[in-house]
C-alpha cells in the first residue's frame, strides 16, 4: 500500500493515487494520454469498489506493463487476443469483473476477429480501447486507424488510402451489431472530456455488473513520441483533427 504524506493542519488532500494502482511508476512516455486513461480506469474500479473481484487483461503494446500498475489480478494476453482471453475468464468465473485494455493495432488489426466476435456474442466484459492512430510500442508504424495523409515510419509520405487502406472505424462497425450493449467514443485532451470519459468508463463497468453485456469505450489518445509532437501539440491535434475524423459520443447504448 502506498505511503501517504501527512497533511499539515488546515490543508485538505485533493489528489492521491487510486487504491487500484500500485506504486510501480507508469512506463508511458511523459505527456502520453495512456497515463490519463490508465488512471481513469483505476479511479472507476475504486469508485465501484470492485478491486477484489476484478481481473484485467494486458495487451501487447505500450500498455503491456499494465499488470504492474494495478493492484488487481491480471492476465497478459497475446497481441490482439485479449477479448478471447477475457471470454475464457468470464465464462469460467462469471462473478469476476473482467476488462481488457487494448491499443488500436491490438484491437483493430491483429485482434479484429476476436474483438468483433466477443462483441457479437455480447460477452459481458468491459473493453477499454486506446486509439492513438499508430503502433506506439514498435516505433510508430501505421495502424488501421491512422488518418489519411498521416506520416508514420511505414507511410513516410503519408497514409494513402488507395494503397494503404482507409482508416478503420471499428467502433462504428461494432455499433451495427446486435450483440453489444454500449459502444462509445471519448477523448481526454482537456478536463471536460476527461470527466466525460471517466463517466463512460464507469458506465461500461456498471453495465457488466448489471449483466448488460459487451461495453466498449474507445478513447482517442496521443503518441507524442511517434507523432513527433509535444504533448500539448498532440492534444491539440486530437481536439482539432482526429476527433473530426472520429466523432466523439455514444455510438450505441441499449440503456
Amino acid at each position: 500500500m502506498s505511503v501517504e504524506l501527512a497533511i499539515p493542519r488546515g490543508y485538505t488532500r485533493v489528489f492521491s493515487r487510486p487504491a487500484a494502482l500500485s506504486e510501480a511508476g507508469f512506463t508511458y512516455c511523459p505527456g502520453c494520454h495512456h497515463g490519463i486513461i490508465t488512471r481513469l480506469v483505476a479511479e472507476a474500479i475504486d469508485e465501484l469498489g470492485i478491486l477484489e473481484r476484478t481481473v484485467g487483461i494486458a495487451p501487447v503494446g505500450c500498455a503491456v506493463f499494465l499488470d504492474r500498475f494495478f493492484n488487481c489480478d491480471f492476465v497478459q494476453a497475446a497481441h490482439g487476443r485479449a477479448c478471447a482471453v477475457a471470454t475464457g475468464i468470464k465464462r469460467a468465473r462469471p462473478d469476476l469483473v473482467v476488462f481488457t485494455y487494448q491499443g488500436d493495432g491490438d484491437l483493430a488489426a491483429i485482434g479484429t476477429a476476436e474483438t468483433v466476435h466477443a462483441a457479437n456474442r455480447g460477452e459481458n466484459i468491459t473493453v477499454i480501447f486506446v486509439n492513438n492512430g499508430i503502433y506506439g510500442m514498435t516505433g510508430g508504424e501505421m495502424a488501421p486507424t491512422t488518418l489519411p495523409g498521416q506520416r508514420t515510419v511505414t507511410t513516410p509520405r503519408g497514409r494513402e488510402p488507395r494503397s494503404h487502406g482507409y482508416p478503420l472505424k471499428i467502433s462504428e462497425m461494432l455499433a451495427q451489431l446486435d450483440g453489444p450493449a454500449y459502444i462509445t467514443r471519448q477523448a481526454v485532451f482537456d478536463y471536460p472530456h476527461i470527466v466525460k470519459a471517466k463517466r463512460a468508463i464507469l458506465k461500461a463497468f456498471r453495465n457488466q455488473l448489471e449483466g448488460k453485456g459487451f461495453s466498449l469505450v474507445e478513447i482517442l489518445s496521443t503518441c507524442p513520441t511517434n507523432w513527433r509532437m509535444s504533448p500539448v501539440e498532440a492534444g491539440r491535434w486530437v481536439a482539432e483533427e482526429v476527433s473530426r475524423f472520429y466523432p466523439l459520443g455514444d455510438l450505441k447504448d441499449t440503456g
Binding site: I57, A77, R81, A84, V85, T87, G88, A92, A113, V116
Partner: peptide
C-alpha cells in the same frame, strides 16, 4: 470464431 480464439479462451479459463 477460430482456433486462435478457442485456444486463447482456454488460456483465459485455465488462468481462472
Amino acid at each position: 470464431e477460430s482456433e486462435v480464439a478457442a485456444i486463447n479462451m482456454v488460456y483465459g479459463a485455465a488462468a481462472a
